[in-house]
Computed example of a mutant assay.
Amino acid sequence: MQKVMFLGAAPMQMPPIEYASEKGYEIITVDYKPDNPGHRLAQRWYDCSTTDLDGVLEIARKEAIDGIVAYASDPAAPTAAYVGNAMDLPSNPYESVCTLAEKDKFRSFLQENGFNVPAAQSFTSASAAAEFAESIDGNVFTKPVDSSGSKGVTRVTDAAQFRDAFEYAAAFSRSGRVIVETELVRAGYQVAGDGFVRDGRLAFRCWANEHFDYQCNGLVPIGESFPSVLPDRLLDHAHSETQRLLNLLDIQTGALNFDFIFTEEEKLYFLEIGPRNGGNLIPQVIRYGTGVDLIAATVEAALGNDYELPDDSPFKGYWASYIVHALADGSYGDLHISEQLQSRIVEQDIWKQRGDPVKLFRGSNDTVGTMILRFQTAQEMCALMDDMNSEIFVEYL
């Protein structure tokens, strides 16, 4: 029986753990939250931070694992690579994974290798960061370099709010580093989605339209709709530039999560390429629309096993993931769902019960629940996803 270690056992990280359980693999989970549901499927679990490189490596060696997975977690991805490299397990170069997982390193890599990149620098000093921000025309973003789930991100439109924005970002950064970068103006939707690398080649990719709720802060994705409505010529260019990036970093295997935009001049800007599967139920929606199971591929690739990954998998139908969220702090009462939206729900998982506290949605840690939706047309899909607060909202006590 093969033994697989999962870094993180939170609700969003359940799919690969459930898959491994169904396959009969021995499961080891690692994180510092004993109540996380993934631990219930594990033969053993360890109370250890998923970012503790040597601590996780010690556990992995003790357990003599055959594979390691960091599912939907940027902070844990370098740890998986570190352990994989040390134990000669299927993995990518540790330094390359760090380059993808840490925003300032990624921006520097893009700059050095001729990719389009916004003006950006990282700082540990708020005053130095403010001086840089003042040198930039227009708005800037402040972001922790090493967090995930869009936590700690602020769009700064007024110099008076900069210090608070910097400190907010720093609070979510393990290293205390905050990146300040100029705001880019996109044409059309921001593109999200997942891909998979096999033998160094981007063997599969499925891209989506990313949706935001501007009644919150407009920065945290509240869903992804598939397939992308951008022209194929732009998406093909993104594919070729992704492959160039993979070659430069010697990325050989595993899942990728994308966020990129095109400007009015059709210039491509990679915002993030996460060396892991996407959250927000992206792999599950891809499985509905294409039949390709990136969850299974992730586990099997980590174990060095063969797995099915067809080259040509056209997307069928119009699907979306949706993150149920609150527009204000309060106590959860119920969830209002319109009749129109109710008929589009394929899966629904609400994490809150009556009386539980909810917060204004500012990051993935404020999630109330999740849904998978199916629509009749691309037009209906985009129209509803862009105006979901008319269809679904939290009712407070």
Rank of each mutant, 00 (worst) to 15 (best):
S135E: 03
G8M: 06
S321C: 13
D104H: 14
A76E: 07
E112N: 10
T377R: 07
V178D: 11
D88T: 02
P11C: 02
P78G: 06
P78W: 03
F6Y: 10
V69T: 09
L235T: 00
F204W: 12
Q284V: 09
G195R: 07
L245K: 00
Q353R: 11
R205F: 15
D194V: 11
S338F: 08
F132M: 00
K23A: 11
Y71L: 08
E26D: 14
N36S: 08
F204S: 06
I222P: 15
Q111V: 04
E95W: 03
G330R: 03
V299T: 09
P90L: 05
Y396T: 06
S175P: 15
E347K: 01
Y71N: 10
S127D: 12
G114H: 07
D104G: 07
S21N: 11
G279R: 03
N116K: 00
E300W: 05
H237D: 08
M5N: 15
Y288Q: 12
I282R: 12
S364M: 10
L294R: 12
N389Y: 09
V229W: 00
A126K: 02
L281N: 15
K267Y: 01
R61M: 13
H237T: 04
A60W: 11
S225E: 00
V97G: 10
Q111L: 11
R276L: 09
A192W: 06
E95V: 03
E131F: 09
A383P: 05
D366A: 02
S225A: 11
G200H: 01
D312F: 15
L184K: 01
V69C: 08
T263P: 07
D366V: 01
E272H: 09
K105W: 13
E22Y: 09
R107P: 07
N280A: 15
Q43P: 05
Y307K: 00
R163L: 08
S150N: 10
A169N: 03
K359C: 04
E58G: 14
D356F: 13
Q379E: 14
N116V: 01
A170V: 01
V153W: 11
H336L: 12
Q111N: 09
K316M: 04
A302T: 11
V145I: 15
S173C: 07
